[in-house]
Amino acid sequence: MSEYAMLIDYEYCTGCKACEVACKQEYNRPAGKAGGVEVIEFIHTLPNDKLFITNIPTFTRACVFCAGRVKQGLEPACVKHCMANCLAYGKIESLQKIIPKKRKAILWTKG
């Protein structure tokens, strides 16, 4: 059972991709290949014909949840730089306390 997880308050993800580049900078990852995180955009036409844009940061197999940074007491690079402050990393029990009440969110566990 994993102790730590990433909480993604994706309702506020604007799709700016700061997380992607923060990850690439942190690990000097090459362009043209996925880093630890990739943002997926959905443009939904809802049943009432309203358009709704949803962005979801997804964590790839390359993500190590910034173990090295976390050990030093720092946030993962993506969490630190998220322009919308919609990522949080920590122990599951503390994340449970900040799960947004009125909107959908994703808890991404380490597995």
Partner: peptide
């Protein structure tokens, strides 16, 4: 407040 966009994160 600690945030930074992808253009600035690409400065190197």
């Amino acid at each position: 407040q600690g945030r930074l966009c992808s253009r600035c994160l690409s400065m190197t």
